[in-house]
Design a binder for these strands. Structure first.
Lengths: 157, 157
DNA sequence: CCATAACCTAACGTTGACGTTAGTTTCCGA
DNA sequence: TCGGAAACTAACGTCAACGTTAGGTTATGG
């Protein structure tokens, strides 16, 4: 496919619903690796980087993590990726047990965080949808009453 | 019960896991009504207010709303409450149809917002727990290998 | 009753996550 | 090839949501 299509900042920004400044900022803060440049110095984004940014935005918007927290999550994920490629290359990386244990701890925290969030959301969703149902019913009745008044007004003219 | 227990700022702050400054700030921004005072001017919180603040914190932390957005949600809920008490007092409030229609719209938005959030969270939860399971398995194997090395080292001594 | 812990207001400070502007340089389609 | 659109860097600005400090007042347990 066109996974190796070259994207400009503006194109990426529009696709992701952010501004170029945000993309620069994420690069500046090390959330994405330094983006390759044209000879003239313009950034050229590839699909992998864009998906990484989408991931960042999900962590931010859905989970409410700060960019710092996101960075440490991404760092862990990057370490796991390095580990996997080393394995795939037939190497036997060192410090793997500690590294994996760290990763497990962090991912457990993320999953727990998500679970807590979903639990709270479910409770609030129930509360609000119940309330909404009751108000809708109330509105139906009020509208009926309103129409009745209009009708009798119409008759009297 | 002791629903009419009097709480000091610090007690409330500790119970809710925030600072006194936050409580003052919410009052200043009109998220909670002016808190009653002792003759000397110290704030005295009651259970209702504390629960309102808990509600605010949930809207903020779980749903990610800004304090401004929360304010408009609370305003709508307050209008509904006023409406209910008017009805309970046998009055027939005016502008009820528009008011209820507005409330329905706002609550629909809230519920939709929650649903979108839960959908995204569910997807991320699956992604992360799958990943976690794989890394746990990998860690098991690494630990086994590690123990095997230790054991043979022990033998050779 | 008094020491000291807790509270008050007012005001300025901080931090994260970008927005904005300025001055310059590069890209690219007619 | 060339002119306007788009990108670049650097730096300062902004805004929400509190944090912090100062200087003074009130509450309360021994």
């Amino acid at each position: 496919m066109d996974r190796d299509k070259a994207w400009t900042v503006e194109a990426v920004a529009e696709r992701l619903g952010v501004t170029p400044r945000t993309l620069h900022y994420y690069e500046e803060k090390g959330l994405i690796p330094e983006v390759p440049r044209t000879p003239g110095g313009h950034r050229v984004y590839d699909e992998d980087t864009i998906e990484r940014i989408e991931h960042i935005l999900r962590l931010k918007e859905a989970l409410g993590y700060s960019l710092q927290e996101i960075r440490s999550i991404l760092d862990t994920e990057d370490r796991l990726k390095t580990y996997r490629t080393r394995i795939a290359e037939g190497q036997e990386p060192e410090h793997n047990v500690e590294m994996l244990a760290d990763a497990v701890r962090l991912l457990e925290n993320v999953v727990r965080h998500i679970d807590e969030k979903m639990t709270r959301l479910a409770a609030m969703r129930e509360q609000y949808s119940d309330r909404l149902a009751r108000i809708r019913a109330r509105l139906q009745r009020e509208e009926a009453a309103h129409r009745a008044v209009d009708a009798s007004n119409g008759e009297s003219e």
